[in-house]
Amino acid sequence: MSGLILKDFLTARRALRSYFTIPIFYFVLTVMGMFDLTFVTVFMTLLVMLLPMGAFSYDEQAKWDRYAMSLPLGRRGVVGARYLFALLLALFAGAFGTAVCAVLSVTGKGDLLESLLTILATLAVCIWMVAILLPLCYKLGPERARIYMFVLVFAPIILMFLAVRLGIHIDLSFLDGLSDGALMAGFALFPLSGLLALGVSYFVSCAIVERKEF
């Protein structure tokens, strides 16, 4: 299974190179006070959502799946490798985001708690997206699944826009009354729920692939 995870990193190495070069550039600009934490959230989204989708596209291009299924790994092994790849990306993105928050806090460019909450929320959204998109990729293929990705990304934005237009306001002032520890613990549940969803998603993908013919 580790070979397949390595394969995903190797096929994505060109994308990874650019994904890493650009954040470093933005990181410097942020420390200089020219950008805020938004760049980290964008970077995390790109890394966690787009790279696993890209891996499906690379595989489809090479017709890799038929070969992968002929390896002595079993179908679950092949699916598991893709999920571990996504999970490693999420862990890395989370670690990178946390490190950036710490540096920005030390350099006095941002509030540590607020930044960390932003990172946790972003990570949670990304993991949930991946948990929904991976089974779709197995079922529909990466091209058709991409349409659903756009729906998942834009639907909440449109809903929020409509809510504002309709004068619907969600009162979040109760958050101000919570202690820092309670806030952190509450927000930490979001990525954890994402991980749980990823586990369920794995079994759904396995069931799809078990029925698939190559």
Binding site: R13, Y58, A62, W64, Y67
Partner: peptide
């Protein structure tokens, strides 16, 4: 297994 095409990715 060897089939009628190469299944390895071009970027490898």
């Amino acid at each position: 297994l060897v089939m009628d095409e190469c299944f390895f990715h071009d970027v490898l």
